[in-house]
Design a protein around this nucleic acid. Sequence first.
DNA 1: TGATCGGCTTGGAACGATCCAATCGTTGGT
DNA 2: ACCAACGATTGGATCGTTCCAAGCCGATCA
Lengths: 363, 363
Amino acid sequence: MTDARPDVDAGTAGPPAGGPPDGVRPDVTHPRPTLDSVAARAGVSRQTVSNVLNLPHLVRAETARRVSAAIAELGYRPHRAAQQLRTRRSRLLGLRVELSAGDKVFDRFLHALTEAADLRGYRVMLYTAGDDEAEIAAYTELRGRWDIDGVVLTTTHPGDRRTAHLAGAGLPCVTFGRPWDDSDHHPWVDVDGAAGTAEATRHLVGAGRRRIAFLGWPAGSAVGDDRLAGWAAAVAAAGLPAPEPGRSVNDPQEARRAADALLDTVRPDAVVCASDLLALGVLSALTARGRIAGRDVAVTGFDDTDIAALVGLSSVAQPLSEVASECARLVTELVEDPRRADTPERLLLAPRLVVRDSSSGPP
Amino acid sequence: MTDARPDVDAGTAGPPAGGPPDGVRPDVTHPRPTLDSVAARAGVSRQTVSNVLNLPHLVRAETARRVSAAIAELGYRPHRAAQQLRTRRSRLLGLRVELSAGDKVFDRFLHALTEAADLRGYRVMLYTAGDDEAEIAAYTELRGRWDIDGVVLTTTHPGDRRTAHLAGAGLPCVTFGRPWDDSDHHPWVDVDGAAGTAEATRHLVGAGRRRIAFLGWPAGSAVGDDRLAGWAAAVAAAGLPAPEPGRSVNDPQEARRAADALLDTVRPDAVVCASDLLALGVLSALTARGRIAGRDVAVTGFDDTDIAALVGLSSVAQPLSEVASECARLVTELVEDPRRADTPERLLLAPRLVVRDSSSGPP
DNA sequence: TGATCGGCTTGGAACGATCCAATCGTTGGT
DNA sequence: ACCAACGATTGGATCGTTCCAAGCCGATCA
């Protein structure tokens, strides 16, 4: 349930009592309660009921009590469509549904965002788009026809034109992901990837590792460069060497090859990886040469996917619930007070390392 | 955000072209076009415009043309909230967002459903619920306040009380998943698990395997029993023995143990598994004893998850796009013509085996 | 020619909420 | 005791669409 208000509903206690399978009364018979019917019952006017709900300070306590009772008895709930027609607010947030790469990250974000939005009286409405241009085209429809109040964007990248369009259309938005170029005139929430790899690196240093390599994606990826930077800074801070990083795209075969090359050339006693999939490549390469992850070479991944838990891989976990609830907060605040657009908030949240066998053996 | 893609900038083609970043006109100045403004422009009445859109056969061709032109010029789009207020139809479908088990199944279904619904002029709205009772409680809010037209349920199970409640409340629904007990007075779409394991079994028979075992979940799981039945039927049809099935919950360690036991006692030359995770247990057990999957023992999984593709595991894939589009069709048809509730459609779609190395070597 | 019929078209009412201006009832000041 | 000021409450208008019953018009038929 969503509402924080005193809604009765009841319906719970009573046993099914046999007979037709509805503890729920078929509301078809009873017409839906409206402001007027509540007002009639409480012996006040329509507007007073509305005030009780929206501007309680205008109503005398005694009156408010009577009205609340009537609301509860009738099971009244304001009708969104009517509110929306009058106020031009839908309390609907748009979210583009992505085919995630199998890491449950988007899934979990989606779940958390739905809950966080719910707490604020908003709902998440989905849309799809083949690419950014299609998404930009979809905004017209989403705004004009469905009247969404705001948008949550999830995969920012350099040269992202979406936020500029949204700003131009006056549609509030937040991004999960920082803007990777200058255009940051919108609020955003992101996870500090560099802090994550840095924490992983420090953990390895603390475990006695001295030759810590990095396996990342090809240079030029914003997210990837960020994660690399964290490792580089941490090894430098520890006074350790920073061997040339390995590079691979996110593909099992390719990752395995890159891991092999890295093990051969660098001969590290630990590898920090930019993703769990890359880390799996390292684990596989280690197994193939009869070496044991966590004992011979420590390995860490990134994103704390199911696979990581499955194979005992230490991994950096993103605080997705927090990200989602901040996204919900920022975008709804912007909806409810557009002046905030002038001073957008930016949040960089710290991830946290989940330690498993792959990094906890003796050095 | 996280994104596993190493996205190089690209920056696409078009230069920002300088100037303010909006090809979009700020509609703030021009008030939103309404039926009335379109009517004025076309020189007809409000209702005629509405008829052009909703009941075109009532309007003379020439008039319709004029009206259409006016609609196009003004960029008019009917306002959902107003329509909804009048017609009591929101064109919103509710879907409970689940924390899936890491197999991308729910993700892909979600994406496909959003697209399929879109094609029919509907949108998917998300909600969460801790358990079925909470979900049932949420219906009141979703229906009464958000006015959703229908619900798509995704994880049916024996003793599922949700559909009965929805029927009682008169809220249309479809389930992805057949009802596992008698109460099937609602349309549903499901994937024929038995057909899937049967196909996998026949494939193994065709590849020369003669001692085909089954590794499933503990008895009593509806989905699991179904998948087992397909295997049992197929081995029987081939005149092969049906060894006692192995049983394990969906846990890596446990699956490995069960696989070991199965290999020891049954000594099969092929194993059909009820899930990819169980199949991974078999693969792991094989590797540990120096035997090669696909050559010594053929293995198939179920669900065609990423992991299956990753390790070259043959797996039964569900036709999720089709499931989603049928779900969308069934629920929207029900919304638009409630009489169909008397004769609910039921669809059992056949999955398809994706053959990989784990089952394609010589017997 | 005038009444009848059907096809299009029309304006008014309704959906259920909020905004607004006006009203009512108290209280306080003089 | 009267008026002003203020707080609480009221009825009417409004958002943009669809439903409804009535109206207009030209064509058909007696």
